[in-house]
Design a binder for these strands. Sequence first.
DNA 1: CGAAAACTTGACCCAACTCAACGAACGTGG
DNA 2: CCACGTTCGTTGAGTTGGGTCAAGTTTTCG
Lengths: 249, 249
Amino acid sequence: MSSDDPILSKMIQKLKTRAQLGAEDCAAILALPCVLRSYEPTAYIVSEGAHPKSHCSFIVSGLAFRQKLAASGSRQIVSIHMTGDFLDLPSLFLNRVDHNVQALTPVQTAEIGRKALQDLVLSRPAIAKAMWVDALVDGSIFREWVLNVGRRDARGRVAHLLCEFALKMKAAGMPENGGYELPMTQKQLGDAVGLTSVHVNRTLRSLAEEGLIERDRRHLVFKDWDGMRAVGDFSALYLHLDQVEPADA
Amino acid sequence: MSSDDPILSKMIQKLKTRAQLGAEDCAAILALPCVLRSYEPTAYIVSEGAHPKSHCSFIVSGLAFRQKLAASGSRQIVSIHMTGDFLDLPSLFLNRVDHNVQALTPVQTAEIGRKALQDLVLSRPAIAKAMWVDALVDGSIFREWVLNVGRRDARGRVAHLLCEFALKMKAAGMPENGGYELPMTQKQLGDAVGLTSVHVNRTLRSLAEEGLIERDRRHLVFKDWDGMRAVGDFSALYLHLDQVEPADA
DNA sequence: CGAAAACTTGACCCAACTCAACGAACGTGG
DNA sequence: CCACGTTCGTTGAGTTGGGTCAAGTTTTCG
């Protein structure tokens, strides 16, 4: 990895949206040894049950999702990650991994030594704070998902997920002009919101018929953002995208 | 707060289940200024939308739950906390709180200055690690709840929650001999697993009729732990109760 | 160009919800 | 200590949102 590493600068870029970093912090990150790795769609990036690997990876490009399996064999996608997200923060400090992470699109990850990252987090306060914010935002999103799956009907769940995507993609710097390319199959959408692919299909149609969205293949255009917000009971608060602006303690 | 504070030693006790602490770490914790506060059932301990308070509290005794409200007015309980749990880790580093925390039983909390706790976490590696583990376990439980609510039927959801209670109560050192006092109403149970109180009632009856549990009022006895585990598709892995035993990096 | 995967649509079904009424426990004040 | 209101729990009857099954159609990709 060369000295002006564009890979680790992705990590810096992300952490800077979580907390302010000083020059030394950035230097420490850039000094981290890391390995670039590629995965094809459906490949497992993190596997359940395994003792945590000796490294911790974050996404340089592409999308990936975290899933758990129920005894019945059905699957629940519990989170979706994009450029800049850490994939196994859990395994940075926990002894077991209790879920899988799978590539959704072709994914490039940067693997950082577990020990090196732990040391960084435990020794540099600014980086620690940024990582804390990141982990806590993760938790906040999980809570919103529990609400989404537990207390909203099909239209609400799907609309909410689509709204979340729109904002997260924008935040991750992906092309987005009033619409975006849906990164997953309807089966996977269903697994994310606790519905069947069949019902996701009907729900998308219903949203389209109502003029809230327009669809062409996987391409999605928001025709009525406020309408979607209303149907999905969506408020961006839980994404905590505004952590840095207000100078914080 | 006297020098051999039994309140802050509760915090030490909890953190020691998350990572090893040295004598200096314990001393630093005991030196923390803190205020004891009491809440009656249904009282709000943390309120949504508010900018985070200047302090951060953890539970000394009693139970509390975290909830979010949907637009429809329905409620989702996203987590339940007992002795030793931090109540607003999120607000330790985030600028907004997007949920409420309410007392379930009479609750005593210890309030610790936000800044003081931040400094502690950012300056003492062993404490930082323990807090990290705590936060990451929290996240792990949320993921399991997403699965529970998204992909299990009523019996599975309720059984799973009852199993989780049993283990968490034992871990928190509450009396438990094959059974325990259910700490919440059937309405609240329903709000935790995404069901109606009516259906929770029927589900409990069904579990009892099958000989898996016995109920008397709110008192619950597990007659068939393995059966409950099977119905609830329960594996304790996600609770990460074994963090400390295996000497970890 | 052919096979597999993803998407659509229809018909039917069932788990969980709603509505409603009643009984049991609990707390409060007289 | 008892009367009484309120909350909690229980049960029934009827409804419905979303699941299941199944058959097409379109897209993707090798």
